[in-house]
C-alpha cells in the first residue's frame, strides 16, 4: 500500500517522509559526518574523493558538488543534515535557505526583514503565491526566467 501523503499540495515544500528517508539515507549520513572537524577538513581538501567514500548515487554526489540544495532535497536530503555542508562552507542557515528560492542573499534577507514570505497564495498548490512552481525562480540569483 502506498504511503498516505496529505501534504503533497503544499507548494515549494518537501516533507521528509519515509520515501525521502530511504532515498537519502547515505546522502544524509555523509552530511552528518561533517559534524567532525577532521571530516570537514578532509572533505574540503578533496570533495570528490570524500564523496566517493559514501554509497551515494552519482546524482546525489553531483548535487552536493554543485551545492544545489533543492536537488539534494529531491534526492532525499534533509535540510537539518544538509545544513552541515553549508556550515562547512561557512554559509549561514539564512544563506542556505535563500539559495533555494532563486533570490540573491540580499533579496532573501530583505524579504525576511520585511516580515518574511507571505502566506497569501502559498498554502495550496494552484494558488498564485511566490512559492508556486510557475513563479520560479523568484529573484535575480535564479538567472533568466523561463
Amino acid at each position: 500500500m502506498a504511503l498516505d501523503k496529505p501534504y503533497l499540495d503544499i507548494p515549494g515544500t518537501t516533507i521528509f517522509d519515509a520515501d525521502q528517508a530511504r532515498r537519502g539515507y547515505h546522502l544524509n549520513q555523509f552530511c552528518m559526518s561533517l559534524m567532525k572537524a577532521e571530516n570537514r577538513a578532509r572533505f574540503k581538501a578533496n570533495e570528490r574523493a570524500y564523496l566517493d567514500e559514501w554509497p551515494m548515487t552519482e546524482d546525489q554526489k553531483q548535487a552536493v558538488l554543485a551545492r544545489d540544495l533543492n536537488r539534494c532535497i529531491a534526492l532525499g536530503g534533509n535540510i537539518y543534515f544538509l545544513a552541515k555542508i553549508g556550515a562547512t562552507d561557512g554559509r549561514s542557515f539564512q544563506q542556505m535557505a535563500g539559495s533555494m528560492t532563486g533570490m540573491t542573499e540580499q533579496e532573501y534577507r530583505d524579504m525576511m526583514l520585511a516580515g518574511g514570505r507571505s502566506v497569501e497564495g502559498n498554502r495550496h498548490v494552484g494558488e498564485d503565491g511566490d512559492a508556486q512552481a510557475h513563479r520560479q525562480p523568484q529573484g535575480r540569483a535564479g538567472g533568466q526566467r523561463a
Binding site: 533543492n70 535540510i79 535557505a97 525576511m112 518574511g116 502566506v119 502559498n122 512559492a131
Partner: peptide, 17 residues
C-alpha cells in the same frame, strides 16, 4: 514559531497564526 528552512517556500512566516 512559524518558519520554513527549505524549498521554494523557504522564509515562510505566518504572524497571524
Amino acid at each position: 514559531l512559524s518558519h520554513q528552512l527549505d524549498g521554494e517556500r523557504a522564509g515562510y512566516i505566518n504572524k497571524r497564526f
